[in-house]
């Protein structure tokens, strides 16, 4: 089963992403900040993909990604930054730090699935593709 790590300080956003990824047949672990994410990376078997917010208290998502990138054992993990930062220069910074893909908030469930496809992360789509971030479908 494909395993995903979701890192965001907003519980609502973690809830939304976990729902989307679970509906794509993935197993999801959540972390509320950078330190907690590093702990989960150590604690759990390897993840296939990590979705990382930029602005979090303490370690930023950019710092977390740089840390992850430095560790050979985590380099095979696909990393997608998920953030409101949409400036071209910010996207370049994220890609240079080690992010493979970048999703700007707000986004729909379809957008997440399509980015995962670009990353080569395996998932299974249920019926119908018109789902959005909200729970009411």
């Amino acid at each position: 089963m494909t395993r995903a790590l979701v890192v965001d300080d907003s519980r609502a956003m973690r809830s939304i992403l976990t729902r989307i990824l679970s509906s794509l047949g993935m197993e999801v672990v959540e972390a509320e900040d950078g330190q907690s994410a590093l702990a989960k990376l150590q604690q759990f078997p390897p993840f296939d993909v990590a979705l990382v917010d930029w602005h979090m208290p303490g370690m930023t998502g950019l710092e977390l990604i740089s840390d992850m990138h430095r560790q050979p054992k985590w380099r095979s993990m696909a990393i997608m930054m998920v953030t409101t930062e949409s400036d071209q220069s910010q996207i370049v910074r994220a890609l240079n730090a080690g992010a493979h893909e970048y999703l700007v908030k707000p986004f729909t469930a379809d957008a997440v699935a399509e980015k995962l496809l670009l990353l080569g992360v395996k998932f299974s789509k249920g019926n119908g593709s018109e789902s959005t971030m909200g729970g009411n479908n």
Partner: peptide
């Protein structure tokens, strides 16, 4: 922004 998010490599 929503359209740009759909499958466009960063």
């Amino acid at each position: 922004g929503l359209e740009i998010n759909r499958g466009l490599p960063a």
